[in-house]
Amino acid sequence: MYEGVVQDLVDELGRLPGIGPKSAQRIAFHLLAADATDVHRLAAVLAEVKEKVRFCSVCANVTEEELCRVCRDPRRDLALLCVVEEPKDVLAVERTREFRGRYHVLGGAISPIEGIGPEQLRIRELMVRLADGTVTEVIIATDPNLEGEATATYLTRLLRPMGLRVTRLASGLPVGGDLEYADEVTLGRAFEGRRSVDD
């Protein structure tokens, strides 16, 4: 145990995701040794981020304004909607520059153990957005793990009867990788999702 505020800092850092007690201690002592202006700048950004950043009123992506950058962009295709779990997933899909539609952030995935069911996710908001018929295709891009798959199955059952085209991102081999290094689960999935090459 360190004295007073130093221990407070270590404890606070240790509560962050991916940071264990040892890393927390290292970061704390790095901050103690660092230049005061650098530390003040970090503190200012931390305060600012909580003050300024909010969630887009349409898609729940992070933004500093009422609407996020994607929802403000008039060149976006309103017929395509990509459903993701978290705002960071929006960024991941955006980096591809392939997708020209808009997003809907659910805020997580269905997981009874963590007490997350459909009403804890922004599914009601999704249904409202789809009601006017502008969107014709919904692309479900939840994580390819158990909870993400369960969420995808739930959404598919909900959306299919509405006459929408519902698609799910393919899962399989990473591009540029070696077949021999793929794990059996991924390779098995890739086999299941194989497609004909003559189209």
Partner: peptide
């Protein structure tokens, strides 16, 4: 009830 509606999803899995 939402719990019951998601139960079918877990049934499938």
């Amino acid at each position: 009830d939402s719990a019951l509606s998601t139960l079918e999803v877990w049934d499938a899995h």
